[in-house]
Amino acid sequence: MEKSDLKSKIELLVIGGSAGSFNVLLALIPKLKTPINFAIIVVLHRKSGSTTSISEVFNLKTEINVFECEDKDPIIAGNIYFAPADYHLLIENDHTFSLDYSEKMNYSRPSIDVTFKVAADLYGDKMAAILLSGANSDGAEGLLYVNQKNGTTIVQDPVSSEIDTMPKEALKLFKPDFIANVDEIIAAINNF
């Protein structure tokens, strides 16, 4: 993918994933070219109450600073932020995070749809969103919303997805800008 393919220079990349996405992130994050000129938010469905922190796992594998969001943390380009388990992740107009412990969406908290939508409202064509492997439909409508707000959209190729339900749900709704396997996704991010 050429840089000119992008609708506009991005300030934010949001990656959503569920079952089968953790391994994709383990392959992907260490291969990102540093420094990155935008912020990355990862919304990953996972069990709450696990003792090892996800930011510690990834901080060992990349030079990029990886954080698990706390309430009202500012979004700073060059960093990776994970949505904390069991909270929805929202973004304020002043580009700080807000956490929300309201009802689950699509049986999920954090919900990928929620973060995709709030990010698209704020960043419009200055964002990209990637939907990875997963076993439910969370993220599909949110990705469509990103597309409608002129953001760049990428869906993991169902063939390369450990569980293809989530990518397929998105592809049922619309044609994203790119359908890509893991290596192609890495290349795309490094070209943003």
């Binding site: 929202l90 304020e92 107009n93 807000s98 709030v118």
Partner: peptide, 9 residues
């Protein structure tokens, strides 16, 4: 109140 959250609600 946090705008992002209340707007969503």
């Amino acid at each position: 109140y946090s705008k992002a959250s209340i707007k969503r609600r």
